[in-house]
Design a protein around this nucleic acid. Structure first.
Lengths: 350, 350
DNA sequence: CTGTTAGCGCATTCAA
DNA sequence: TTGAATGCGCTAACAG
């Protein structure tokens, strides 16, 4: 019904046809120019005319059309558990940067750490024909992975590995990190130790806990081991767990938290209970989030090298995407070293 | 060259044609079923057959194909200055949630606070035919906006307004916030005040500074006004500015920082200089980032209501997108109230 | 109420 | 070395 006056309507982007006409060739030729990576099989003169036409028209191929006919969209999906987490910024930023540098656009999904929503997101991304997916710290069951793989979509897991190695994975060495954190507390002289663990189903959390247990096997007189509280990896989760741990007769003097996020909750709990850190209780976290270095926090922690994990994960993904030939090669696992970062939240017991 | 054995290749997703065949109708009819919002103009029996076919085939329309023919992709672009910033998590999360709830997928771009890269990103998004764009705290010049608008892409600005109201905008009241922060310091008894401002070209920063100046017009004996340092809105920027401000003979006893991020840098500077907060110097920030509430930080600040800003921005955008009719209606500006959050970083001067 | 026809913009055979 | 024809999967006229 609306009589669209040409002056009024949005300017139509030039199409490959416009370029072809202007260069005096056909769409097919232009398409070859575009895709054959400036291969040699074209007359120099036509190539030049096409180049000029593209330039003059400011033509850029439509990603949509290209995607439809090629079934590839120069897009990669990024699925995270919760963007709000203190831990992601570096990881996400480095993935974003690496993807963009390689000419890919990032599509973002946040699962809220819920496996069902995670699958929805993965489905939707598969649908939109992303060329690859980075799964960051998500609860990916193997079926999620299979779903993607069956559709020829490459995958990489970052920061959280699965019990089985079902896809390329880049993580930090949680076992070693857990041991280092615990050893640090022991070396400071603590013997009444405790651990706030993340959910047991998350492998890195399980590893960190094992690290704690290995390094304290000789402690815990009654044979039942040292106290361990399992909590959600949130500030509140850590806070509650710390309350349970510390609000007792003879509280531990050193606590190793499975994540900095939880450790921050631990700091709050100490404040709640009137305990001073590190005078009354020493705290060690895991991840080395940015806020840990603030004065007044000074969180001793394990650096999980988020930037490098993100970069390397993206590298691996791109490699798979570009080499569909050996895309079926066995998945590889990259375990990056975990390093202790000493600050002020842990000190010798009084 | 590769002889693709059917068993080996990825299972082809069912298309609208498959559904049509199975239901004994044509593609067009299925398409109507899909788009006419289950309108009344269809025989109940065919509708049922189509429904069944879709269900049995687990069919979902290809977003790519749909996008190509409709020129709309159920996608919205999110452009941020820097994902790493302490300030975004809530904002981004709420935008992501709102978009997803409305059935839109989020495409993420990070400009590094660089206008050129920002334009690149916007171009790329326009190209990918996003239906709308949320610009978060970016340096959007009017041309960026025009570029999008000319292509019929709706826009909303969140958290940073521009000198002219060129698009729907949702921000917090920076002027009032700046005044409240300053007044709080004065009411505590401070008279030697200073301000660490953000870049003058960013309107909210300019407003916060003006708020500071309005509330301190009677101070600054020599008529030149109270000291103001301009800094980049980063931790390091705030730290450096605070050094310049505090490492003098008679330093201010109260400093208002234009952002929490900078205020955190200020905290570090105080630690560097051996100044105690709030004993020697009181600090007030702006934004109410999550870490501000940690014990050991306790940052007094102005809440900028990131979650609501994000939600409302997304709402506005979706409304524009769905009502192309009055898409040309004048842009509206939503200014949300700024509220003082009192913690421990500001106290009466000694 | 449903089917026919023609695109959307590009890639890709196969001929010429 | 280039062109013609066909398809990617879906939507949108217009008929019937």
């Amino acid at each position: 019904m609306q009589t669209m006056e040409p002056e009024n309507s949005h300017p139509r982007r030039p199409t490959i046809k416009d370029v072809a006409d202007r260069a005096g060739v056909t769409k097919a030729t232009v398409s070859k120019y575009l895709n054959r990576a400036h291969g040699y099989a074209m007359a120099a003169s036509t190539r030049e005319r096409i180049r000029a036409a593209i330039q003059e028209l400011d033509f850029q191929p439509s990603p949509l059309a290209r995607g439809l006919s090629r079934s590839a969209t120069s897009t990669i999906g990024l699925v995270v558990a919760d963007i709000r987490s203190q831990f992601y910024p570096d990881l996400v930023a480095s993935i974003q940067a690496a993807a963009e540098a390689a000419g890919y656009t990032l599509v973002l999904g946040s699962s809220g750490d819920d496996p069902d929503r995670e699958l929805d997101i993965i489905r939707s991304m598969a649908h939109r024909r992303v060329d690859g997916v980075v799964l960051v710290a998500v609860r990916s069951e193997s079926d999620h992975i299979d779903y993607l793989r069956r559709r020829g979509i490459q995958i990489v897991l970052a920061s959280r590995d699965l019990p089985e190695l079902v896809a390329d994975t880049v993580v930090v060495d949680s076992l070693a990190g857990g041991r280092a954190a615990t050893r640090h507390l022991r070396e400071l002289g603590h013997r009444r130790l405790a651990h706030v663990a993340g959910e047991a189903t998350v492998k890195p959390f399980a590893d960190r806990r094992r690290g704690f247990e290995l390094e304290t096997a000789d402690l815990g007189g009654d044979g039942s081991g040292l106290p361990v509280e399992v909590a959600a990896s949130t500030i509140d989760g850590g806070r509650a767990a710390a309350h349970r741990l510390l609000d007792v007769a003879e509280p531990p003097t050193g606590v190793f938290f499975a994540s900095d996020t939880m450790a921050l909750g631990g700091l709050m709990a100490c404040a709640d209970l009137g305990l001073r850190v590190p005078d009354d209780v020493s705290i060690v976290g895991f991840d080395n989030v940015a806020v840990g270095q603030l004065p007044g926090i000074g969180l001793t922690t394990i650096d999980s090298d988020a930037v490098r994990v993100g970069e390397q994960a993206t590298e691996l993904l791109l490699k798979r995407m570009l080499a569909p030939a050996d895309a079926d090669a066995d998945p590889i696992l990259v375990t990056r070293p975990a390093e202790l970062v000493v600050r002020t939240s842990a000190a010798p017991p009084r």
